[in-house]
Design a protein around this nucleic acid. Structure first.
Lengths: 353, 353
DNA sequence: ACATGGATGGAAACCGGTTCCCGAGGCGGA
DNA sequence: TCCGCCTCGGGAACCGGTTTCCATCCATGT
């Protein structure tokens, strides 16, 4: 029993053509739309298409040069709320512009990152968006530069979101948000409430996002003529658990502070729980501030004072600039502003007895 | 000035062949690996590949039948924490199994959903995972059934995650978690603490996830011989804002209750904030429970008692069953268990004066 | 010395589409 | 009536790969 390709699975354009009694080119033209086809032929072809439930193979179309373009999104972990927000922005804008959206999680492993970028180049992705902070080492610059060149030579484009920019001349689009400025404004707000000993729960020391926020922390102090106590600068990472652990340690060590500024809202959430566990009231006993303005920030108790970062807009902007570019401009660098959101977790320091 | 295709962008396998002085087949064989090639030729080819920074076009490979398979993930909004968790599980397992991962957000619009599924069929995705609850109408069944058949006839497979199953015989894999059982256990726990008037903050009435949780709520009451007051069953949706609004309304209306069970943790978060705003203490004045065990649940204050749903595992399982299937078994239905996580937001009801 | 066979690499067909090129009719105008 | 244009549709080349088939070449066995 000979099997026509019709009975099982994917039917090809030639199957449709055979069933409609026309040539493959005609089927393609009917489906394509613009070429003149008699209404009788069109009807027959469309009937065959419907009968066979035919859909043209998108990969084959792509190879012929008329496919749906694709855009790739590489991040560490979609689970983080700010990453999810950016992913959402990217995805929305990508589909709005008629692109498909490939997503890859690196799980923080650099090898995965370069491997993914290579795969995306093979996929002929229109752009590759790389998200999330990184250590600004020379190894980083070199590796990222290589990826950028490689993508550029393939007609694609690398976009760095919240990552350290490369040197000038790298074919890369960098979109950052103002970590230093946001932290400066936030800490200035805390200091304006009278606090003088502010604990900083930072991220990894070589992570540029963490560095920017720490710089803002320091600058805000100095702008008031204060010199922050180095003992109040703690390092961890951007997770809830780090915040919890660091806060618990600070409390156990008897560190002297009246306010806490966490490098992210997740860190702040962990710290808040540690404070509660120690029987402390926020903001009566200790003030607390976060960074990122994740959706849950306002449902913490007290509602968290934090810095709003337009993550979703960032994602949208990333794909828009990556895709909308007409010229071969070598580099672009956008810096998005942030603003502090005052809620209930920072209170004025009462005059000490 | 004639341009060789070498100078700008994507070089083809023939460019590499020309540069290495061999035929395209030889390049393919060197890159493919298994076919015997003299080490001298291999070296020349690899040199040319490196010089041109050549990567084979994945789409062309796919059309030739040797591509990286793809898996599609369609959800409403990646921003929701449980969705993000599932997405993470899907993504991890997909890359572990050597698949690429396409993601689409429907923004809750059914038209987007069928359109995306159609696109994924055109992409020849190995499986399409559809996530998130839906109303179990006949229109839903019909539409989903059509998508399932259509994918199956193309050699692909539809996976429903946390969605109502179709009738028997539909070529679909359904993976659900036990909404009714989880809610039953949770509410039983609340009732065991002595609460008798429990407010239920539900989701959309025709949403099967919401229905399951409501059934569990009712069943737990009846198992104790209690008949819940219909006035304590409120409907909204699964957002934080709905929880906030509903809770505020209940307080303003002077509803009589000593405990609140929310249909999701997000709803609980909004409700908690509303309770705090009303000056109520949880759990002293009112007990509160959620559902989903999102990562932030334990950083609410008080830490939220809730039902743990293995979302990430769910995502992993979805791709494993969708991809690992060897036979053409027409339907599968998996039900994952849940368990309640007791934290601090539900307390015993003190004997009333 | 000659047949044999394994190693090596090129030509061509194929995957599933699109599009260029051209020929066959139908129709109107000269 | 004949010519030319316009409409329509088929054949073939092409996109960028892989794989089958076959022709060499060289080393070995007898």
């Amino acid at each position: 029993m000979t099997r026509k390709s019709e009975d099982a699975g994917r039917s090809t354009i030639r199957d449709v053509a055979a069933r409609a009694g026309v040539s493959a080119s005609t089927v393609s033209r009917v489906l394509g739309g613009v070429y003149p086809v008699s209404s009788q032929t069109r009807t027959r072809v469309l009937r065959a298409v419907r009968d066979l439930d035919y859909v043209a193979d998108a990969r084959a179309k792509a190879v012929a040069g008329v496919g749906t373009p694709t855009l790739a999104f590489v991040l560490e972990d979609i689970t983080g709320p700010s990453f999810a927000l950016m992913a959402h922005g990217v995805e929305r804008e990508a589909t709005r512009l008629g692109h498909l959206c490939l997503v890859c999680s690196t799980e923080g492993d650099v090898r995965n990152e370069v491997e993914f970028v290579e795969m995306m180049r093979a996929q002929r992705a229109a752009a590759v968006i790389l998200v999330g902070g990184a250590a600004d080492t020379s190894e980083y610059r070199e590796r990222t530069r290589r990826m950028a060149d490689s993508l550029a030579s393939a007609g694609s484009r690398l976009v760095l979101c919240g990552r350290p920019p490369l040197g000038p001349g790298a074919p890369v689009t960098v979109i950052e948000y103002d970590n230093e400025g946001g932290a400066f404004a936030l800490v200035a707000h805390v200091l304006a409430q009278g606090h003088r000993r502010v604990l900083f729960l930072g991220g990894k020391p070589d992570h540029t996002t963490a560095q920017g926020r720490e710089r803002g922390f320091l600058a805000a102090h100095r702008a008031r003529g204060l010199e922050p106590d180095p003992a109040l600068l703690l390092n961890g990472d951007f997770t809830r658990d780090a915040g919890h652990r660091l806060m618990r340690g600070a409390l156990k060590d008897g560190l002297d502070f009246t306010a806490v500024v966490a490098a992210t809202d997740m860190v702040a959430a962990g710290a808040l729980t540690a404070l509660h566990e120690a029987g402390l009231d926020v903001p009566r006993d200790v003030s607390l501030a976060g960074y990122d303005d994740i959706p849950y920030a306002r449902d913490l108790h007290p509602a968290l004072t934090t810095v709003h970062v337009p993550y979703e807009e960032l994602g949208r902007l990333a794909v828009r600039t990556a895709l909308g570019r007409t010229t071969e401009a070598p580099a672009e660098h956008l810096l998005l502003g942030t603003h502090v959101v005052v809620r209930d977790s920072v209170a004025a320091l009462p005059a000490r007895p």
